[in-house]
Design a protein around this nucleic acid. Sequence first.
DNA 1: CCGCATCCCTACGGATACTG
DNA 2: CAGTATCCGTAGGGATGCGG
Lengths: 118, 118
Amino acid sequence: MSAEQSQRMMSMCESARVHVDELLVVLAKSKMLNILYILNCDTKPLRFSEIKRRVNSSSTTVTRRLGELEKHDLVTRTVFPTVPTTVEYSLTKAGIALQPSLESLFDWVLDFADESQN
Amino acid sequence: MSAEQSQRMMSMCESARVHVDELLVVLAKSKMLNILYILNCDTKPLRFSEIKRRVNSSSTTVTRRLGELEKHDLVTRTVFPTVPTTVEYSLTKAGIALQPSLESLFDWVLDFADESQN
DNA sequence: CCGCATCCCTACGGATACTG
DNA sequence: CAGTATCCGTAGGGATGCGG
């Protein structure tokens, strides 16, 4: 662990972690990691229905999560003036910066899921 | 992204993600990432009260989270026959394997928190 | 197709009080 | 100290139905 990181950890472990905690709460919401994950799977933008299908959740929840992600500038929402409407979601720069973390995390989850087939 | 990972991602994105989903649900519970995080901060085991103090949560919740972590073999619970009782928690092998992912994730969270001081 | 409003209903977190 | 048991309030997810 780097010195810089340790230092930031110290300050974070102990106090003034408001922003960090808030972000963790957001990331911890139901289906949130799933959505970020599938947006990572494909490099190209995904449609609403496609996301909904893949995370296997209600449209209400998917809408909520995508709204929160957009609010926190993690995804971009693009509306196409087709009939009926087409909407595509893609990761922002900040969202893309999450990729290594998520890859690493899901690698672990997959490995762990492999091992613990109890 | 490696070919192997892509392949596992494909199968995971589409179907049979029961275990993975379950793990995600566990990881997404309140204070869960926080607890894993502080267990990562120190290399040495932590006492219950110390964990509780750092995550700033009720003993009920801390107990629940630690129980779930233990159930999923991510932490080890060690009881010392002192009076009053002393209990220490430490990461298991699987828990330690999570370290890189968490470090990466929290790095991102910290960076992101730095940027978005709105 | 996308997605919001509404209602319902459960699961989850916190407070409190109590044990070994 | 390290929990457990209980109660309770609420946040949050799902179903349904509608609108752009």
